[in-house]
């Protein structure tokens, strides 16, 4: 505890900056991210366009600000769905065991058997395009891994004496699960959440890179990356803007996760 936890400090600073950047993007951007300006197509960074412009003359910084918001929204929602449902499933299966465990975990296995992307692709094509559907699809894909982690922890906790002690106090099952056991698995869950968040950012970027889930006129980091590929040699700043934001988002949360893990040791 003597040495300072730089992981946590830097992680929080970077994440706070990114969240400020995203919040700013919701209310104000330097230019209209949708406005095409034929006079400044594929312009290098200038004072008017700090990250340059794309092939239609749209301001890249503004688009990155909007796109980062979209990515964050999807990643956050994905982790929220995955964690909430995964924790519930994991808690019930781990604590009770028996046929409930068998049924839910075999269903879980079935979900895991599909490659995550394939499953998300199928779900999006069934649900239809749109950011909310992408979020839902990715959320479902993320459930099994959380369920598994949480299940292991609850199964271990079930035989612990503090749980027996809670039973003797007359605590309800819900109270035992979420008030007594859950705080004990919080550290494990928290690091799973940070890793999950980063995977979700990448998944969203990859999905929109493939052109799935987000419509082309909406700003999206992944779609911008795929768009910029053709111009990598002539306008590298196009890819750089979107790429940098993805990297910083992941780095910040990743450092927080690492910092949290070290804190307990």
């Amino acid at each position: 505890m003597k040495t300072r936890n730089y992981f946590l400090t830097f992680g929080c600073v970077i994440t706070a900056l990114m969240i400020a950047f995203i919040l700013l993007g919701y209310f104000w951007t330097p230019c209209d991210p949708m406005k095409m300006d034929g006079s400044v197509r594929e312009s290098a960074p200038t004072l008017a366009h700090l990250m340059g412009t794309d092939k239609f003359g749209r301001d890249i910084l503004s688009r990155v600000m909007k796109g980062a918001g979209a990515t964050f929204f999807v990643a956050f929602g994905t982790v929220l769905i995955g964690t909430a449902v995964g924790t519930l499933v994991g808690a019930l299966t781990g604590y009770f065991g028996g046929w409930l465990d068998e049924v839910l975990m075999r269903f879980n296995d079935a979900l895991t058997a599909f490659p995550g992307f394939l499953l998300a692709l199928v779900l999006v094509s069934v649900l239809g395009p749109g950011r909310r559907h992408l979020l839902l699809a990715l959320g479902i894909v993320f459930i099994p891994s959380y369920a598994r982690i949480v299940r292991t922890e609850f199964e271990r906790a079930r035989s612990q004496n503090y749980v027996k002690s809670a039973q003797l106090m007359g605590a309800s099952t819900a109270r035992i699960l979420f008030v007594h056991i859950l705080p004990n698995i919080w550290p494990v869950l928290l690091s799973a959440i940070t890793i999950g968040f980063n995977n979700a950012v990448l998944a969203e970027a990859a999905m929109s890179y493939l052109g799935i889930g987000v419509s082309p006129d909406e700003a999206s980091l992944g779609y911008m990356l795929s768009d910029s590929q053709a111009y990598l040699a002539t306008t590298p700043w196009y890819a750089l803007g979107a790429g940098l934001v993805i990297v910083l988002l992941i780095l910040g949360v990743g450092l927080i996760g690492e910092g949290l893990q070290r804190k307990d040791l």
């Binding site: 004496n161 106090m169 309800s172 109270r175 004990n184």
Partner: peptide
């Protein structure tokens, strides 16, 4: 129990643990 470390909830404070039966009651 024999090993109080395992019978007391490690994530909670002593005050919380002692108060919990009363909260449930």
């Amino acid at each position: 129990f024999q090993d109080p470390l395992s019978s007391l909830n490690p994530a909670r404070t002593v005050g919380w643990i002692l108060e919990e039966p009363l909260r449930i009651y």
